[in-house]
Design a protein around this nucleic acid. Sequence first.
DNA 1: AGTTTTGATGTAATCGATTACATTTTTTAG
DNA 2: CTAAAAAATGTAATCGATTACATCAAAACT
Lengths: 358, 358
Amino acid sequence: MQSDKYDKSKRFDKLKESKKIARKRPTINDVAQLANVSTATVSRCLSKPELVRPDVRTRVEASVVELGYVLDGAAKTLKTHQSKTIGVIVPTLEIGGYASAIQAFEKTVAAEKYTAILGVSDFDADKELQLAHNLAEKGVDGIMLIGMDSDDRLISFLEKVHIPHVNSWHFRRDSKYHWVGFDNRAAIQAITSYVFQHGHRDVVFFVGGAEHANARTELRRQGFMDAISDYNLEFSEGLIFEVPYNSKASQLEFHRLWSLGNRPTAVICANDILAIGVLRACKQIGLRVPDDISVTGFDGLDIMADLWAPITTMAVPAKQIGEESGNCLLNLLTDKNPKTLTELHCTLIEGGSVKSLI
Amino acid sequence: MQSDKYDKSKRFDKLKESKKIARKRPTINDVAQLANVSTATVSRCLSKPELVRPDVRTRVEASVVELGYVLDGAAKTLKTHQSKTIGVIVPTLEIGGYASAIQAFEKTVAAEKYTAILGVSDFDADKELQLAHNLAEKGVDGIMLIGMDSDDRLISFLEKVHIPHVNSWHFRRDSKYHWVGFDNRAAIQAITSYVFQHGHRDVVFFVGGAEHANARTELRRQGFMDAISDYNLEFSEGLIFEVPYNSKASQLEFHRLWSLGNRPTAVICANDILAIGVLRACKQIGLRVPDDISVTGFDGLDIMADLWAPITTMAVPAKQIGEESGNCLLNLLTDKNPKTLTELHCTLIEGGSVKSLI
DNA sequence: AGTTTTGATGTAATCGATTACATTTTTTAG
DNA sequence: CTAAAAAATGTAATCGATTACATCAAAACT
């Protein structure tokens, strides 16, 4: 094996030199030397202090402080194959619910000394895949996926590299993977039924997605149709309006619809942002809510109660999702076997924006 | 140096064994073997592909795909002392502006292949310090601090371990560190003056903080006082109400104030959340806005225009802060010398919630 | 053809921790 | 007081990349 064709002497000289010159952060060796113990003892002081004699421990700790020693996580990770790090992939932080979920997630895993690494996918499946690859290189111990029904490529990649993951926000019943969330379809069905119960029959459905349609959008459409068929009403594609996820877009869409003579008695929106846009259009047109038209949202933003017409909406358990996803992943990481499906529930918040026609 | 007191043979046996058993991810060695090149060549293919002959490169790339090789970032970081990772410390994600700033920041640094590591400090200086220590261990190349006027301990820690950082949101003029943000004091002064210009003289100031007062809160108080003295009005501590950062708290506070017979003509709020709470209280009391009382917010939430009384507010350049902080840090990391202070500006958004008394 | 230059590839030390096992020290038991 | 057991500490291989330098190959000059 050993080959003699290289002359190593020169390199050594150079290396020694640079060692003298470069100002580096102190290493475990420096601490060991100062405290007059071996590196093993220092390492133990840091990770399993109960294994080292109190007086030695004190000496080591003093050296750590004196040198301002900070452990090199890269070296530790390399040796232990554990980074104490969890990746979070989210479509956007601009959706308040996602931000809340992440915050709750971070808090949950931080309690077990895990750090969150953030990736924003912008609803782009390719970017999402790339983020996952990046996170894998960073050595994350697990990954949390929020609010997207992820690409199969992504899931199979995670399987291949053995990174445990949790899907969150909504869920799929028929999956072998771990999900934490609510039943999107049922929740939309519920709020739609609520509108029907109030006697509305001429309703339209605004759903975000146009640009980045995904399974979630699809589930929402289905929830709407479920309610329609529950009430034996007639469904037509024309009742569904796909709108980009922002209030301006839904505002314009409602104007367009209204100007074409489409005059529903109620507008059901698949999220609060769209509802806000509709509300703006109503104000401009001069429609009173709910007297002239009923409007519902979905997400449960606090703010919905403070609009010029308080809007009935469905509160999504964002914080819970974050916590439960965190717990689920923590269990996965300690080989406990968490439930495959953690179902959480939405709550209808009546704002009074649905007029009773009966 | 070499000591003979250890018998190494047993250990080797054990190690070889475990190697056979353990299912590991493929390493650069495996790729090298399969492609029939040295590890050096594989490494070059991955980081400087132009240095390797196309045919070899193709062979290596094929091996990478075949084995499903994922580079071990920990090993790379250990050797290169670069993690391509940036820490972000934020008090909370529940404040929409912070989330926007982080998102913009992430996008900016991601373009240069940096990944963001998130830490939520909950307005707690100790937790913040601990987060910084954690991030240092993780080996972040830089740190972005949002929305807090950070502890001196934090800053000196970062100096000691040589981690470049950017402070953001508001700024301090007299600092040798890097700041990206707006002039908090001046912005509050501006919106307060706006209210005075409309003839109001009997105003109160709601400022968030009570629980976690910091320099930022202090600057806002000062901005308010600046405007007062500009208009030669008389200042009293009783004009300032410190309220926890949530709408419920400010709602209650306004009720309390009103019931005590304090009847200002305008309420200036240091953030939109507080303004929303005040608005709720007004509605409950039966006060019309702005006819009976004027209210202003601060932050520029889109939603302020859709409340039952559209609120005048000051838009904060959150996205810009994220982008510019990102650029600043990127420059810092490449030894370019960015400006110490990047001043951004707020924009007054007139919602009509300030009645003209003249 | 021989020499120099340029380009591509290989060798193996190195980064800074952890940890199995060896060794030494201390405690406990007899 | 000694032997055995338990506790504390030390040694040095190891994790998986990178990269300085050496070497070899091919192209560009004389």
